[in-house]
Write a protein that binds this DNA or RNA. Structure first.
Length: 681
DNA sequence: TACATGAGGCTTTTT
DNA sequence: GCCTCATGTA
């Protein structure tokens, strides 16, 4: 938020800042200074004498919270100490401190989606279902997704299965059994996935005595991006504020883009009804963008089926350059065009950081990344595959997880299977031996690692023996290490040869692991590191290292981001690429609308475009490639809309030509005709 | 029991 | 087109 550009608070902002007590809903359009309001209101609470630790600020990414508090600190020095974090962080703290009330024997381990799916596979195996050839099951990932969706929407599994896994509609009872076995498996092993964290916290807060004890820590609760909360998160927020009623939520229903994750933008629309006595403030003056950019946003908004608000009005930047829609030949040409534009800014230190390239799907930026690498233009990537999801990072993390919790089965299985000659069965058998509770009690081994150290010789035979012993020796050295970083080094010393054997031609993996050490170094406590990595991949993204390492120093990199990850951010110049009708809207949303008559997802895709457009301050470029992976592609229906077209300057690159069936080449006029045509393949 | 091979299903966005 | 799972083979 460009708070520095708002000279004074306007009337609505002032009202929102001054209402320090009670329930308050702030409906803030894009760029209307809601962040400024949160900062200012926080400062006023501190001025009034509220201790910073008593203020809780919840958002969806920790970075957003940290930046907000950093800026608030300019107004009040104590703001940096305000208690802030993501919903998942706060929920995890609550769960970890109250694990006994949940019947757990210790604080749980957070697992990511991938391991949650692995746990589904383990549950299926335990039920003996995988041997049954007559009844096939969905893949583990599809099952995990269905279970997650049911949890997030608080919907019956049957509904989700009917919608997402229609082939298995007759098997709902079996799937239900898998879901129960899966939950039991996770509970037994002390694993919590992202959904469990929220559900457990909400359940705990449903116990009045726990709620009052936990909630007593804070006197004021502030929630940003409330349009993206799901039912569990809304419950957590209201429970934490229940004792005092000081709950401020801020959001914009038109920017709700997490419906797939169970976000319920009705929660913000209905907030005033759910919370009696809540005051409502609307922020409508936009301080971020030029009017020319807002004209595009307004034209997109006009296509929305519901809640057509008053158009955004540029309060600080009237006029402005008209956004441009450029049509080029293909992906390659898109990458060239963008790279050309960025290269011009290379001579202008600091300017590069003012640019962002936004995409609907993470993989769409791959050709551009290649081109920027080639030209040594530094960039940072947000969204898509996260660093900790890369196989090589997960391998080393598995070692750290074992040090943290010797009973971490998924981590053991992962590491053991890296050994030559060891597959699923052997790994499972070894782990069963190492973790056998009776044997552990009988022999006095402290845990699986200690037992593995003694048993290594006996369980393994022949060629696998040496491999197992090397692994155990490495874990042993890592365990004795005096710091987390040293443990990491010990594991790495063992792992790097394994890595070069498995991926001999991918040196980037080693670079990743070297880069990752910088993250590891920051932690003195292994448990904190692992919890943060699972809950907050944001801070450990595959980031600048992807850019040219030998680029001139001090250049702030260009941002490449998914639209989702760009939420809440802004840049002087935004380039939106991948705007064909098979990308934005996504084919799933289109299919859902055509088949089930459910326009909900299509509406969300419109909001996605709205979010993308409103990230730009001064200049907006939309680049469309005529040819994609599936041949000729039409421009997004949302951009073809006459209202939107009227706000854009349309340009066609001279290179954008294509051959029709007869081999003739069309240019300009022909291209535009093709854009408007209804043939899409 | 590890690994190769083939068939089939699913393909996005994030904590 | 890619990943996952199941079956066949050494």
């Amino acid at each position: 938020m460009s708070s520095d550009e708002i000279p004074t608070l306007n009337r609505a902002q002032r009202e929102a800042c001054e209402r320090l007590d009670g329930a308050l809903l702030v409906v803030a359009g894009a760029g209307t200074g809601k962040t400024r309001v949160i900062e200012e209101r926080t400062a006023r609470l501190l001025e009034r004498g509220v201790a910073p630790e008593r203020v809780l600020l919840m958002t969806f990414t920790r970075k957003a919270a940290a930046e907000m508090l950093e800026r608030a600190a300019l107004r009040h020095p104590l703001a940096r100490r305000v208690d802030g974090g993501t919903f998942h962080h706060v929920a995890f703290r609550i769960v970890a401190r109250n694990f006994r009330a949940l019947g757990l024997s210790g604080p749980p381990t957070v697992i990511d989606t991938d391991d949650a799916a692995n746990a589904v596979a383990a549950a299926i195996q335990r039920l003996g279902l995988q041997r049954d050839r007559r009844r096939r099951l969905p893949r583990k990932g599809a099952l995990q997704a269905a279970f997650s969706r049911a949890t997030n929407l608080r919907a019956p599994l049957a509904d989700v299965v009917a919608r997402d896994l229609p082939d298995f509609a007759d098997e709902v009872e079996t799937l239900q059994r898998v879901r129960r076995a899966w939950s039991e498996y996770k509970l037994e092993r002390g694993y919590v996935d992202y959904d469990d964290v929220l559900v457990m916290a909400a359940k705990l807060l449903g116990l009045p005595e726990v709620r009052d004890r936990v909630a007593a820590a804070w006197s004021h609760v502030l929630v940003d991006e409330y349009q993206d909360v799901n039912a569990w998160q809304a419950d957590i927020a209201t429970a934490l504020a229940a004792p005092h009623g000081n709950l401020m939520v801020v959001g914009d229903p038109k920017q709700s883009i997490y419906g797939f994750r169970g976000a319920r933008h009705e929660k913000i629309v209905g907030f005033a009804d759910d919370v009696p006595g809540a005051a409502v403030v609307h922020l409508t003056d936009n301080y971020r963008s030029t009017q020319a950019i807002l004209d595009v946003a307004n034209a997109v908004m006009a296509q929305m089926a519901s809640r057509i608000d008053r158009p955004l009005r540029a309060a600080a930047r009237p006029g402005g350059e008209r956004p441009r829609l450029t049509v080029v030949e293909d992906e390659r040409a898109v990458a060239d065009l963008v790279a050309d534009a960025l290269q011009e800014r290379l001579g202008d230190p600091g300017a590069l950081g003012g640019h962002a390239v936004l995409v609907r799907n993470a993989y769409l930026s791959v050709p551009l990344q290649g081109e920027l690498l080639r030209r040594k233009i530094p960039f940072a990537v947000f969204g898509g595959l996260r660093f900790t999801e890369a196989a090589h990072v997960k391998d080393v993390l598995a070692g750290l997880r074992i040090l943290h919790n010797g009973f971490d089965e998924l981590a053991w299985l992962r590491l053991l299977q890296l050994l030559d000659g060891v597959g699923e069965t052997t790994a499972a058998r070894w782990f069963a031996d190492f973790s056998d509770p009776d044997a552990l009690a009988a022999t006095g081994d402290g845990g699986p690692l200690a037992r593995a150290r003694r048993r290594g010789e006996q369980v393994a035979s022949g060629k696998t023996r040496a491999g197992l012993q090397e692994l155990i020796a490495a874990l042993d050295r890592a365990e004795r290490a005096v710091s987390v970083a040293e443990s990491y080094d010990q594991l790495l010393a063992w792992y790097l040869p394994v890595l070069s054997r498995r991926h001999p031609h991918e040196p980037y993996r080693q670079q990743d692991l070297a880069f990752f050490r910088v993250v590891v170094e920051r932690y003195a406590d292994l448990g904190a590191l692992l919890a943060d990595l699972a809950l907050d991949p944001e801070t450990t993204r595959q980031a600048v290292h992807a850019g040219a390492p030998d680029a001139a120093e001090g250049l702030r990199p260009v941002t490449i981001s998914t639209i989702h990850s760009a939420k809440g951010l802004e840049w002087d110049h935004v380039v939106l690429v991948g705007v064909d009708d098979r990308t934005l809207p996504s084919p799933w949303a289109v299919r859902r609308a055509a088949r089930d008559g459910d326009e909900g997802e299509l509406e969300e895709e419109k909001r996605l475009l709205y979010v993308a457009v409103t990230r730009a301050r001064e200049r907006l470029d939309v680049v469309h490639a005529l040819f994609g992976r599936q041949g000729l592609q039409r421009l997004s229906r949302f951009l073809e809309d006459p209202g939107v077209q009227a706000t854009l300057d349309v340009a066609t690159s001279a290179r954008a030509t294509f051959a029709d069936e007869g081999g003739a080449t069309l240019e300009r006029g022909g291209l535009l005709a093709a854009l408007a045509g209804d043939e899409d393949g």
